[in-house]
């Protein structure tokens, strides 16, 4: 049993994910409150080169051919051994396609408590989690003895989790990675779209508030009048109303336009995390409590269907005149 804080580093095809640095930053803050060292846990195969800039005192490196790519079964088995042996005070995972696949199973298997969607830690070590699409925060004491925590972005800057000083790296033997039930067959590259929304300066984004496929044309008309590009939230893409390449958010693209005009988008965390680098976010949403208004610079509660026609007309007039 120690006060150490483990951070399970997420990486994909040779690239460390931003959430890893966010977690290292969070662990740094948490260690100020509760003591202990920040220790990065890196799973991989010939992956030690990834560890150079982690803001941690030590890297525990689990090297095994079965860990070359993420699979839930191998990661979970490797981590179960490590956590039960070292008994740290907390283990941080991303609330992501990697971390969320393994943290819950470890909680049941090891009989350890799990907190999900944690955004930040208080000075006293309390967790603050984000639920209900960002509309509610839940706070509580970090559970004992070892708290498993999945983290969402937004509470810390990735830069704060980086260091110029390479941490010491300790290679550990991994056992028990046989009889695995999950294996990676292949990666499928994302479909290339006609435009790259990550590079566009003006994005007209539509969400579930657009209601039906026919209404997408309204956004297209506005985009055409302004010289912008239409993109959307997950429900709109899942309905097939826009191409996958136009998806903004956690599972889609991070964008950073000069103007992001969000129409009928609530601003759920999975959407919000990908638009906060925009210069100006403007939100049109009839719900005054929509979380999008907490990240937008300008907002209006007007019904988008009342606003869009006059807006197109005025944009055209401004362009013509």
């Amino acid at each position: 049993m120690s006060q150490d804080i483990f951070v399970v580093i997420e990486h994909l095809r040779g690239q460390v994910a931003d959430i890893s640095y966010v977690m290292l930053a969070a662990a740094g803050e948490l260690s100020k409150g509760i003591g202990g060292n920040v220790i990065a846990v890196l799973l991989g195969n010939k992956a030690e080169g990834l560890a150079g800039n982690f803001a941690a005192v030590q890297v525990l490196y689990l090297d095994h051919p079965a860990l070359a790519d993420f699979t839930s079964d191998a990661y979970q088995k490797a981590l179960a051994g490590l956590i039960s042996e070292k008994q740290p005070r907390a283990v941080l995972f991303g609330n992501t396609s990697i971390g969320a696949d393994v943290a819950s199973g470890l909680s049941i298997k090891l009989g350890l408590p799990l907190v999900s969607s944690c955004r930040s830690f208080g000075a006293d070590g309390k967790f603050v989690s984000q639920i209900c699409g960002g509309k509610i925060m839940a706070e509580g004491d970090l559970p004992s003895p070892t708290a498993l925590v999945t983290m969402v972005p937004g509470g810390y800057k990735p830069e704060a989790g980086q260091s110029a000083q390479p941490p010491a790296l300790t290679r550990l033997e991994v056992a028990g990675l046989d009889a695995l039930r999950v294996s990676l067959a292949k990666y499928i590259e994302p479909e290339a779209g006609d435009v790259d929304i990550a590079k566009e300066p003006l994005l007209i984004a539509v969400g579930r508030g657009i209601q039906q496929q026919d209404n997408i044309q309204l956004a297209e008309d506005l985009a055409q009048a302004m010289g912008g590009v239409v993109c959307g939230s997950r429900p709109v893409i899942d309905q097939g109303w826009l191409a996958t390449s136009r998806l903004v958010g956690k599972s889609g693209k991070h964008v950073k336009p000069k103007v992001y005009l969000a129409m009928g988008i609530s601003g759920a965390p999975e959407h919000a995390e990908a638009i906060t680098d925009s210069d100006v976010i403007i939100a049109i949403n009839t719900d005054p409590k929509a979380p999008i208004f907490d990240i937008a610079k300008f907002g209006t509660e007007i019904d988008l269907f009342d606003l869009i026609d006059p807006l197109i007309a005025k944009v055209r007039a401004a362009k013509g005149g």
Binding site: L114, V115, K135, E139, A147, F293, D294, A296, T300, L311
Partner: peptide, 25 residues
């Protein structure tokens, strides 16, 4: 068992809120 105890729930008070535009369309 295995779930955390919540001490407090609250609606987030954003550090900054959008400047709201009102009026006719």
């Amino acid at each position: 068992s295995g779930g955390p105890a919540v001490g407090r729930m609250f609606q987030p008070e954003a550090a900054v809120h959008a400047e709201m535009i009102t009026g006719s369309p």
